[in-house]
Computed example of a mutant assay.
Amino acid sequence: MSERENQPVALITGAGRGIGRAVAVTLSEQGYAVALTSRSVEQLEEVAAVCPGPSMVVPSDLTDPGAADQLVTRIEQEWSAPEVVVANAGAGVSASVQKTTDEQWQQMLDLNLTAPFRLLRRTIPAMKAAEHGRIVVVASVAAKIGEPYISAYTASKHGVLGLVRSAAAELARSGVTVNAVCPGYVDTPMTDATVQGIVDKTGRTAQEARALLEAKQPNHRLVTVDEVALAVLACVHNGALTGQGINIDGGAVQS
């Protein structure tokens, strides 16, 4: 942990790679002391090393019912209550509805919906008391539309967008904003896993599989992690922006 000198605190979940890493570096560059959490200590330490400002590495499994409380309590004790919370941790699974197991269904709900809910429930009181706070959930365009073979993932992302909208309505006069950023296919390890799944199931090459995903977006390329981080930053900076699901997908879903 590096020393913090009165900077506002931002908590980023899933901060070890991909979008979470980009968001952590961006907020650090913006003057926030960043608390970084994911399951991998090694990845978090690598991210902390490239953040220009103070950073705190707090490994955690947010699917554990007590994890959100323990995580935020430690940040409050060592620094102060987070002013910004970016709930980015998430995962996907691909299967047809009839082949989706109870375990896969529950995994998607636990990580993509229940974990953000617990984090919001734990961090909102201090934000309300301070009359200022910014909550951003990294959802997906799957929160807006349905696609085949990702029913559990889609259900969890639709659910978390509902959570964002309800929380934003509750907090509209409190100084606390709640938004979702909804990326399409982003150039991340999660998309690499999707590519590999297409390869395994169809026999296509990795290059062909990646081209299929790129073609789903009108600009025919993957979104970059930095483009998603800029959308998160807009939610942090703009106090009139709340209750929104902001699509970052090259124009695929117009809403």
Rank of each mutant, 00 (worst) to 15 (best):
residue 132 H to V: 01
residue 110 D to F: 01
residue 114 T to W: 00
residue 146 G to I: 12
residue 204 R to W: 11
residue 28 S to L: 00
residue 121 R to F: 07
residue 122 R to V: 14
residue 163 L to Q: 02
residue 127 M to D: 05
residue 130 A to V: 03
residue 39 R to N: 13
residue 76 E to I: 05
residue 74 R to H: 11
residue 246 I to P: 03
residue 34 V to S: 11
residue 189 P to N: 13
residue 245 G to I: 02
residue 211 A to K: 15
residue 107 Q to K: 14
residue 166 S to N: 14
residue 224 T to P: 02
residue 21 R to P: 08
residue 197 G to E: 14
residue 27 L to D: 14
residue 133 G to V: 04
residue 152 A to G: 09
residue 254 Q to S: 06
residue 174 S to Q: 10
residue 104 Q to L: 06
residue 27 L to N: 14
residue 141 V to D: 05
residue 80 S to T: 08
residue 144 K to H: 12
residue 20 G to E: 12
residue 85 V to R: 01
residue 254 Q to P: 00
residue 40 S to A: 10
residue 122 R to I: 00
residue 89 A to E: 04
residue 82 P to W: 01
residue 12 I to K: 13
residue 244 Q to L: 03
residue 140 S to C: 06
residue 138 V to Q: 04
residue 80 S to P: 04
residue 108 M to P: 05
residue 18 G to W: 12
residue 61 D to H: 11
residue 80 S to C: 13
residue 27 L to K: 11
residue 53 G to N: 13
residue 87 A to M: 06
residue 177 T to I: 04
residue 147 E to D: 10
residue 162 G to R: 05
residue 237 H to T: 10
residue 72 V to S: 06
residue 22 A to V: 07
residue 113 L to N: 05
residue 59 P to I: 00
residue 181 V to Q: 09
residue 138 V to Y: 06
residue 105 W to C: 05
residue 188 T to N: 11
residue 249 D to S: 04
residue 21 R to T: 01
residue 17 R to N: 15
residue 232 V to A: 08
residue 221 R to L: 01
residue 73 T to V: 00
residue 133 G to L: 08
residue 133 G to C: 11
residue 112 N to K: 02
residue 112 N to G: 09
residue 74 R to T: 14
residue 44 L to H: 08
residue 163 L to N: 05
residue 175 G to M: 08
residue 239 G to W: 01
residue 197 G to S: 14
residue 62 L to H: 02
residue 49 A to F: 00
residue 179 N to D: 03
residue 71 L to N: 02
residue 180 A to I: 08
residue 46 E to K: 15
residue 96 S to Y: 02
residue 26 T to N: 13
residue 158 H to Y: 15
residue 56 M to D: 12
residue 108 M to C: 11
residue 16 G to M: 10
residue 30 Q to D: 14
residue 55 S to Y: 01
residue 66 G to M: 11
residue 109 L to R: 02
residue 170 E to A: 12
residue 132 H to P: 04
